[in-house]
Structures are given as C-alpha cells and as structure tokens.
C-alpha cells in the first residue's frame, strides 16, 4: 500500500465524488490507498470487520456466497469504475459476503475507520457521503431485483 499522488485526481474525476467540496475531497483522498489483487485473491471475507470501501480502477471483483459442497454463488461483479462495499457505514461493520478478484484487479481502498470518525464529527460531510452511498445501495437493490425476476425466462418465441 503505497500512497499515490495520482489518487487525488482519480477521486476528483470519479462521478461518485462529483460535487464534493475540495476540503472533503482532500480528506477522503487522505484515507485512500492503491491496492492490487491477483486473480483468485480475496479482497475481503464474509464476517471480517468492514473497515474499508473500494473503488474498482481496473478489473473485476465478484461478491460471492460460499455454500458447502458446491461452487460459490456470485451475487454480482464489481467492475471498472464501480464503488464496492457499504458494510463500513452499517453496524455491526462486518462484511456480508466474500469479495474475490476474478482477474488481476487494481482498486482504490478508503480507510473507513478514519472516515467514520470524520463523518460523525462533521454531519455535513456525513450527509454528503451518505447521499452518495444511498445511490449506490439503491442501484444495487434495483439491479438485484431485476436479477431476481428471471428476466430472460420469458422470452421471444
């Protein structure tokens, strides 16, 4: 984990952070780090403390559920540009799923322990972050519902 000067710009340009003021961005960039995962490597595991969230720069990370005696079930993949992980803002701050890189993936991680404290102390910042995460959560929920309805089961004859 090496601090990267390019991170600041990356965060600034990402649609997720659009509209945030400079001070907040600086603060967030201060909690960010580059991480690299090889294919098959876990980004986090179910039950572990959720002390980070991620942004996928390049690659693909599968959110999976393990089941004994069978292959893991992939709930979704997080791909280029996706923001991944919100267990860090929802008590008890533990990951609900496994996250496994399906190929070489470069992520930006954000230190949630540092962020949580700042968000609590600064409700305006907290609200700005929550608003952004609510969008991610809502989109994820909408997608999950569409996945659930077996869209292609009834198709054109």
């Amino acid at each position: 984990m090496v601090q990267d000067m390019g991170l600041d710009k990356l965060i600034r340009d990402h649609p997720f952070f659009e509209g945030m003021d400079d001070e907040a961005l600086e603060l967030i960039a201060g909690c960010a780090a580059n991480e690299r995962f090889d294919a098959g490597q876990y980004v986090f595991r179910e039950g572990q403390p959720a002390d980070k969230f991620y942004m996928v720069r390049h690659g693909s990370v599968a959110l999976e559920v393990r089941a004994p005696g069978r292959d893991s079930i992939v709930l979704q993949t997080c791909d280029d540009g996706d923001v991944m992980g919100w267990s860090w803002i929802v008590p008890p701050f533990r990951w609900k799923w496994d996250a496994r890189a399906t190929r070489l993936s470069r992520l930006v991680s954000f230190d949630a322990i540092c962020l949580r404290g700042k968000l609590d102390a600064d409700p305006a910042l907290g609200y700005a972050m929550y608003k952004r995460f609510v969008r991610v959560i809502a989109e994820r929920l909408a997608h999950a519902r569409l996945q659930m309805i077996d869209l292609y089961g009834i198709g054109k004859e």
Binding site: D71, V74, D79, G81, T102, H143, Y152
Partner: peptide
C-alpha cells in the same frame, strides 16, 4: 456480456445488462 446468476467458476460479469450501459 453479463449474466444474472453464476457460480465462482464463471470468470465474467454478474449483474443486469442495464449496468453495462452506464460505462
């Protein structure tokens, strides 16, 4: 290409097709 349901053996994307449009 994306699929709605897959196991860990699938190396591709999992999620609804509309998600592909975004980026």
């Amino acid at each position: 290409v994306t699929v709605d349901h897959a196991t860990g053996r699938w190396g591709g994307k999992v999620g609804v097709v509309t998600k592909l449009i975004g980026r």
